[in-house]
């Protein structure tokens, strides 16, 4: 379970998060929507441990541990996964090599045996097939020369292999056509289980047709200003965010 209590964070002098309170129980998928500049990406970066964001108050407890005190790689081992809005290119680093290095680093930290190349490839090929990715995906350099849709699918492939307990999807739907969107949604839905939870950050309701959330939150002005069932997303789609910030 993820519990965020009164989280304040800033970049430089600018306060972006101003007291976020949020509980995501295991097994649930929560959507976070909100206008530009509301702090959606900041929330995902703060939770995954990116440099440059200063937490001034509050805490984020995941499975009993305050994740805000952990290095990013320790958070990854604890089961937190961030699907990037803009996945990063790594020239010269093969996708399979990257994935195997990551998976084995996490397995080591969890006290599990590392996978050899053969076992890993078997696993990776199966996951790639589920996501309808061509096999040469694994041979290409990480995200180098990938289309927007391919990059997002690659994020889903990583997620499928690393098997996180909590996935944070930062506008994973941006830049996707409808077919790619469905594939990404299937990737998330495939992980659904009583032990898996997700925070799906999105601008648009359409992703939520495919990843049906248990709860929808509206983040505006650095706070959660409304929470509700999946119908809230439809309402926002119809009426916009105007007026919510003051609420």
């Amino acid at each position: 379970m993820l519990e965020i209590k009164n989280l304040h964070a800033r970049i430089g002098e600018k306060e972006i998060l101003r007291g976020v309170n949020l509980v995501v129980p295991d097994g649930e998928i929560h959507a976070i929507m909100g206008p530009n500049g509301a702090g959606k990406s900041t929330l995902s970066y703060v939770l995954s441990g990116r440099d440059g964001y200063e937490v001034t108050e509050g805490e984020a407890i995941y499975n009993g541990q305050n994740v805000l005190e952990m290095e990013p790689e320790v958070r990854a081992a604890a089961g937190i996964f961030l699907a990037f809005q803009y996945p990063v290119e790594l020239t010269g680093v093969g996708n399979a090599n990257f994935l195997r290095t990551a998976l084995n680093a996490i397995r080591r930290k969890r006290g599990e045996a590392e996978l050899d190349a053969v076992a890993f490839l078997k696993l990776a090929r199966a996951a790639a097939k589920t996501l309808q990715m061509k096999e040469d995906f694994l041979k290409r350099n990480v995200n180098v020369g990938f289309s927007g849709g391919e990059k997002k699918r690659n994020e889903m492939l990583q997620m499928a292999l690393l098997q996180p307990g909590l996935a944070i999807l930062d506008e994973t739907d941006s830049g996707l056509d409808i077919d790619a969107l469905k594939i990404v949604a299937e990737g998330v839905n495939a992980l659904r289980s009583p032990k898996f939870s997700a925070l799906v950050i999105t601008h648009y309701q359409r992703l939520l047709d495919h990843i049906v959330p248990d709860v929808v939150h509206v983040l505006a002005g650095g706070r959660i200003v409304r929470s509700g069932s999946k119908e809230l997303a439809l309402e926002l789609e119809a009426h916009g965010y105007a007026g919510l910030e003051a609420a």
């Binding site: 995954s48 441990g49 990116r50 440099d51 440059g52 290095e71 990013p72 790689e73 958070r75 990854a76 081992a77 996964f81 961030l82 990037f84 996945p87 990063v88 790594l90 020239t91 010269g92 680093v93 090599n97 990257f98 290095t101 990551a102 998976l103 680093a105 996490i106 930290k109 350099n141 990583q158 690393l162």
Partner: peptide
């Protein structure tokens, strides 16, 4: 070596040193 490359690797479970090693070896692969 961009901060976002390091963070990307670390968010996938790689230590800072391993991330640098991976990026540098990629750079030198040819």
């Amino acid at each position: 070596i961009a901060e976002d490359q390091l963070f990307y690797c670390r968010s996938r479970g790689l230590s800072q040193e391993d991330a640098v090693g991976l990026i540098v070896n990629g750079f030198c692969k040819d």
